[in-house]
């Protein structure tokens, strides 16, 4: 198991009452597989992903990365070295070019970074479908689909084994959506990554190796 969540509890205080978003939720993920997490709007998908990516901490329960509590690893360090995060709204830095955006995590991580980082960044973008001429453009001059590809390349730049994505195709048309999903499948199956994608879409869930459904704070397998 590369990633394991145990008995996660997360709630919002609603006056006197606690409104649980996640209640004793447990889930685990393996390398080489493409996972999806389905759920209605407001069901707590983003909340779960934020806990798995150490952007937030649960009120109780643990998240283990390679059997080590990420709290022990250190949230910042875990984000820096062990996980690549992809957001619905891309979250690229608009003043920088695509390749510069990919280079940023390489200077932050403590993982080994190849000498010719820039070439690697170009290759990575090329692999994801961004040609060199577009790689040198400021990212706000790229289409939504292109921007999300850059975001995927950025997530891969630190050579992590775990990719977490929150509705990565939410802002894209169907054709673009399929291309992105294909990339995720390739990453899981050809490059032995563990890819976890949160989505609304049944279509996507059907293409994953394993799908979960989040409802009323409880996760169940989705067939």
């Amino acid at each position: 198991m590369i990633l394991e969540a145990k008995d996660l509890n997360y709630f919002y205080q609603d006056g006197e009452q606690r409104r649980y978003i996640l209640k004793d939720t447990s889930i685990s993920f393996e390398k080489g597989k493409f996972y999806t997490i389905l759920g209605q709007s407001g069901s707590g998908k983003t909340t779960l992903l934020s806990l798995l990516s150490a952007l937030d901490s649960p009120h109780s329960g643990t998240v283990l990365f390679n059997n080590e509590d990420i709290k022990k690893i250190g949230y910042e360090k875990y984000r820096r070295n062990n996980v690549g995060i992809i957001f619905q709204s891309y979250n690229l830095i608009p003043t920088f070019t695509a390749v510069e955006n990919v280079l940023i995590p390489m200077t932050i991580t403590e993982n080994d970074v190849p000498e010719d980082a820039k070439t690697v960044a170009y290759n990575l973008l090329d692999y994801i479908g961004i040609v060199k001429s577009k790689a040198d453009r400021p990212v706000n001059k790229l289409s939504g689909g292109e921007q999300q590809r850059v975001a995927i390349a950025r997530a891969l730049a630190t050579n992590v084994e775990l990719i977490l994505a929150d509705e990565p195709t939410g802002n894209l048309d169907e054709e673009m959506e399929q291309e992105i999903i294909d990339i995720f499948k390739r990453l899981a199956h050809e490059h032995d990554k563990c890819v976890v994608v949160v989505t609304h879409s049944n279509e996507i869930a059907l293409q994953s190796d394993q799908a979960f459904l989040l409802r009323k704070g409880v996760l169940t397998a989705y067939e």
Binding site: E76, I93, I104, I108
Partner: peptide, 13 residues
């Protein structure tokens, strides 16, 4: 704000 948030999400100190 967003740019700074991105650095932090990437684990920058």
């Amino acid at each position: 704000k967003r740019e700074l948030g991105i650095y932090l999400s990437l684990g920058e100190k």
